[in-house]
């Protein structure tokens, strides 16, 4: 039995999904924590500094590569699994088991994930490319702001501008809802996949996952809303 077999078997592929999923959940915690700085009431100073730290320090930059790898694996593997699993039933049912046997979002991880992927492309275009690649080629450059004599990218201002559009705000909210349901299944499922089989732990993780799936996407959704309604 080789390691390759371990990770390419049906269980192994799920392991990849589970581990990358947990990694992405960790990323969400960092991301939401950082972005919550917009509500510091200092017109974005703390937020811009934090964003600068993430962009200008070595360790987060290295982790960022891992993050992209994580996303990439999670997405590719997810699509491959969805396609393979679908192919395992060449003739479908006339009447489906549906919600009697499982939650709709548990069965719709592919669709939810796809919505999140579409959002991600938009999101990267909105914020990541200008802050990392601004000025290169045609990529538009972020405005600058100065705190204590040092110049920072004014990402806060960028958010304000982006979230002026109601369409964008609605798209972000839709994405957050997708993320919420993706997490409602994904959080506890990831832990089952990596082998947590104690009934009590599973119950705790499900409760924790549900809490996470509500709080984190809600916090994310409140960001565009806050900008749009002028709360920050």
């Amino acid at each position: 039995m080789t390691w390759k077999q371990v990770f390419t078997s049906s269980v192994g592929k799920k392991l990849v999904m589970g581990f990358t999923g947990i990694f992405l959940i960790l990323f969400l915690i960092v991301h939401v924590g950082l972005n919550a700085c917009i509500w510091a009431g200092d017109n974005g100073e703390m937020f811009n500094k934090a964003a600068h730290f993430m962009g200008a320090t070595v360790v987060p930059r290295v982790l960022e590569i891992g993050l992209f790898a994580g996303f990439f694996l999670h997405i590719i593997q997810g699509y491959m699994l969805a396609a393979q699993n679908k192919a395992k039933r060449p003739v479908g049912y006339a009447v489906n088991y549906g919600n009697r046997g499982s939650k709709w979002y548990s069965r719709s991880m592919g669709i939810l994930g796809s919505l999140i992927l579409l959002f991600l492309i938009m999101h990267v275009y909105h914020f990541w490319t200008p802050s990392r690649l601004g000025g290169i080629g045609n990529v538009h450059e972020l405005a600058a702001v100065e705190y204590n004599g040092r110049e920072y990218h004014n990402l806060f201002l960028e958010m304000k501008m982006v979230f002026e559009s109601p369409v964008v705000v609605i798209l972000y909210i839709v994405a957050c809802i997708s993320l919420a349901y993706h997490l409602a299944h994904g959080f506890q499922s990831a832990f089952r996949t990596i082998g947590v089989h104690n009934k009590r732990y599973n119950m705790m993780l499900t409760a924790l996952g549900n809490g996470f799936a509500i709080i984190v996407p809600l916090a994310f959704a409140m960001m565009p809303v806050s900008f749009y309604l002028g709360w920050v």
Partner: peptide, 15 residues
């Protein structure tokens, strides 16, 4: 044998 992989939907347990 050509079975799919598990995505923990719980439909099996329910039935």
């Amino acid at each position: 044998e050509g079975f799919g992989s598990c995505t923990n939907t719980g439909a099996c347990e329910a039935t």
